[in-house]
Design a protein around this nucleic acid. Structure first.
Lengths: 160, 160
DNA sequence: CTAGTTGCAAATGTTTTGCAGTCTC
DNA sequence: GAGACTGCAAAACATTTGCAACTAG
């Protein structure tokens, strides 16, 4: 639809800066991640979406999706998270550490939240323990306001 | 050769209370987890240690270790954590949410830290968003004081 | 005795890897 | 062109499950 979005440009610049090539597979993964704005997708979900969205280019092999995600992670463009130990890894566009995950055990939805909490953590650690913080991963599990209202407490997983 | 440590008793009581049986496999897993005091072990590491420690009893099958850990988790005795997305799940004795993980990217060591940070997070969320918190998972990655002193810089700083 | 547990082996599901052909630079 | 990428298929891993034998209660 659009020729080159800002995000697409960002991808190209970063790829070239790192001596990597700009390919359809990489563009496709990046676009799919954008289209899913904010959602946390598994490699399978991602691959499936790419098939739909980038019909002309054809599907991208799972292996390439894995390789691409690994690369994008190195470039700091995406971030992997594992919400449940038994679930496959999920990917999302990189977001600053100041955001953290709020996962509802009832409806399964994951929200991002912003606050000064992470900033406080950084402060606390640096001052108190000489620990040089690189990244903070904060995930809070519980029941969201909506589910509490419905009284849904048993916890039935949701599709997506 | 100690008959029954306090921890061992705790295990038996909780097992019986839940209508489960007290078996060698379960004792072995529990003891191995204690012997590794504070460490985060994979199922493989755990299985290997059981082989050494409980030589007389013989080895415990991986499948049983998995099943046992699942049970102990239900009983609230152990806790699973995933430090890196590509790593297998690691297990440790349960600890209160008020503790959080401090992982050194250089030496790989994981420490537990205690503080009011998690408590503040709970407060903040409950007051501000009507989110009923069940669990908090906080992992901070960085370089520990010791490694900083040695100037061991095998990694590249991530962001701010 | 009875039914919960275990060990084994095979199944499942995810992620990685070797290689030959393809496409970017 | 040269060499970085991709697709494909098979391999490598982590975790789960079916089932017969075992054993705690």
């Amino acid at each position: 639809v659009v020729g080159a979005t800002e995000a697409e440009r960002e991808l190209e610049v970063l790829l070239r800066a790192g001596g990597h090539r700009v390919t359809d597979a990489r563009r496709a993964v990046w676009q799919a991640l954008h289209a899913a704005d904010g959602a946390h997708l598994t490699v399978d979900e991602l691959t499936e979406r790419i098939e739909r969205v980038a019909g002309r280019t054809g599907a991208i092999d799972r292996a390439s999706v894995y390789r691409t995600l690994g690369l994008l992670e190195e470039l700091g463009l995406v971030r992997a998270t594992q919400l449940a130990a038994t679930d496959p890894v999920r990917w999302e566009r990189a977001h600053p550490d100041e955001h953290f995950h709020l996962q509802c055990a009832s409806c399964g939805r994951v929200e991002h939240h912003e606050g000064d909490l992470v900033a406080r953590i950084l402060e606390h650690l640096d001052v108190g323990h000489g620990f040089a913080v690189q990244a903070v991963e904060l995930t809070v599990t519980g029941v969201c306001a909506a589910c509490r209202a419905h009284g849904e407490d048993d916890g039935h997983p949701v599709g997506g």
